[in-house]
Structures are given as structure tokens and as C-alpha cells.
Design a binder for these strands. Structure first.
Ligand SMILES: [Zn+2]
Ligand SMILES: [Zn+2]
Ligand SMILES: [Zn+2]
Ligand SMILES: [Zn+2]
Lengths: 145, 145
DNA sequence: GCGATAACGAGACTCAATCTCATTTCATGG
DNA sequence: CCATGAAATGAGATTGAGTCTCGTTATCGC
């Protein structure tokens, strides 16, 4: 179980190691994401930071998310509503996938070792390098029955 | 193995059965998709139809795709470039998933019974209704090695 | 044919995401 | 401690996929 501040220090270590300076916007975005276990959109991040009295430019938010993505520090989640969401990516590779409720739009996280094994075997069989995978289930969440 | 014109007649049967009239734009989009085995974006459809001398309004293309989607006649494919793509959905439920090449952006289709079984077992375990699933792998295609 | 109404399409509009560029902040070494 | 060059930031303009509006056109049951 990888904790929140764990992720934050990992992020800082990776970025410092890659020679990046520090900056206010980057710290604010990382702080916010470190307190989230599931995905936020760039607009949600912008709103959340403004609400916390830490307003941050849109361009900076997208830049930070792009940088984190390039270093495999965030996971990009797309569920088909035209908005990209981002969640902390843990160094050990442990991750979850999402079920989207077609009624209320809620995101439900899950993980499944059987699914991961199947994807691993599939990747071997394909004979191409597979770096990453995304799985989205659609259905109804518990609330919407 | 479901053929192209097979899909087209299936589409017409379903839509006629649901009481929809025919119309030029709808026919043109269905004809075009029937000749494709993998996914096209709305813009690609618009361009392809114009290039074929069958120009079709953007609003109509999106309306047709939405209608086909509501009746499970097309599959919506999102690979994270901010564009939705659409491909024929076959009535038997047979389908494929996609690997996206991070270098050239190419889409490579694949299917894998083991993956489908794992998703089936997972759906049962979750205890929620799961209607649909999407899997996207990222890596390099054969050309980009 | 006629009429009711479904289907269509030009173009305005929305909004997430990107781009520009002037300003601010950082790290370093003098 | 300050000067300096580079990196980081952010306000605002811009892009472009996707949606909406509404007047026109086509379909089909009669
Ligand atoms: Zn999540
Ligand atoms: Zn996984
Ligand atoms: Zn495909
Ligand atoms: Zn499948």
C-alpha cells in the first residue's frame, strides 16, 4: 500500500533527478493530486486549487500534468466524456481500472489480478512491446442499481 | 465471420424495426462504415464522404453516429487523443480491441479470448451490471519496433 | 398528391485543450 | 548578497471536436 506523501516524495525525487527546478504551480498540483486516490480532470484541478485559495494558471496545470505523464508519475484516464482525468501513478506499478456508471457518470475504481494476468499473457502473445494498458467497464454503479 | 454488407443489412433491419425513416445522410454514413473494419472519427467520415462526392453535414454525421450507438450498431473507440472513433459493431457480440502505437499513432486491432474470459469473470465478481468494456494497449507497432 | 413529421445541414456556439509571450521565480556562482 | 541566465508561470488568445438551432428538404402513410 503506497501512501500519499510517498507518492509526493517519489515525484519530487524523480523530477529533481531529471534536473527540473521547483515552482509554485507544480507544487500545488502535486500536493492536490497527492491527496486524491482516483482521477481528477484539469478543470477540476483548476477549480479545486482556486477554491483552496491557491489559484493556478490553466496553462501551468496542463504543463505539469504533461510533465508528470512523461515521467510516468500520473495515469491518464479517459472514460469517453471528452475529458482527460489524471491520478497518481505509483512507482511499484500497482494500479486500478474504472467502471463508469452510464446513469450517473460516477467513476468506480477496481482492480483484478486475473485481468492483469490475462493482459500480461496477451502482451506476450502479441509480440509487440506493450508499455501500458487501460480498461474501462461501463454499466451501473451500486447506487443506480 | 460477419461480412460488411451483413452489417449494413443488420443496421437497416434494426432501424426499420425501430420505426425510423430512411435518409440520405444516414445511408451515406452507414455505407461508408460498412466498408471499414476498424474505427473512423467523425471528421474522417466527413472528409471521406466529401472526397467521394457525397458531402454530408457535420450535424447529421454526429446524429447518425449517436443513433447507431444507441442501438449498439457501432462501437465507440477512444484512444486518448481527444477524438472519438467509431467502427461497426457486429450483432453476435464479436469484437476486437486496440493497441495504439505511441510512436506513429497507428491503431492495431486484436482479439483475445483469454482477455474476454477474464473480463467476464471480473464482471461477475463485481456484482454490478457491466454492459460493455473497452481495452486499449499502448506500445509500439511492428513497423516502429 | 398531401400533410404530418422525421431527417437534414449551414453555421453559430461551447468548452477542453493548446499556444503565445511577457513576467516572475529559481538556482548558481561571483 | 546580488546579478544573471534559464526555467517556470499565467493571462488571454486560439484551436478544433463536438453540440445546438432552426429553417429547409425528404420520407412515407394516407
Ligand atoms: Zn482511479
Ligand atoms: Zn491493469
Ligand atoms: Zn477497431
Ligand atoms: Zn472485449
Amino acid at each position: 500500500m503506497t501512501g500519499r506523501s510517498d507518492w509526493s516524495s517519489h515525484v519530487h525525487a524523480v523530477l529533481a533527478g531529471a534536473g527540473f527546478r521547483r515552482g509554485g504551480a507544480r507544487e500545488r498540483v502535486i500536493d492536490l493530486l497527492a491527496g486524491e486516490s482516483c482521477a481528477l480532470s484539469a478543470v477540476e484541478i483548476e477549480d479545486a486549487l482556486r477554491a483552496k485559495g491557491r489559484p493556478t494558471g490553466r496553462a501551468s496545470i496542463y504543463r505539469v500534468l504533461e510533465l508528470l505523464g512523461e515521467h510516468d508519475l500520473v495515469e491518464r484516464v479517459e472514460v469517453g466524456d471528452g475529458v482527460a482525468r489524471f491520478e497518481p501513478a505509483h512507482p511499484g506499478g500497482e494500479h486500478h481500472h474504472h467502471l463508469v456508471c452510464d446513469r450517473c457518470g460516477r467513476l468506480v475504481a477496481f482492480d483484478d489480478p486475473g485481468l492483469e494476468r490475462a493482459i500480461g499473457r496477451l502482451s506476450d502473445r502479441l509480440g509487440m512491446r506493450v508499455d501500458h494498458h487501460e480498461v474501462v467497464l461501463r454499466g451501473s454503479c451500486e447506487t443506480c442499481g
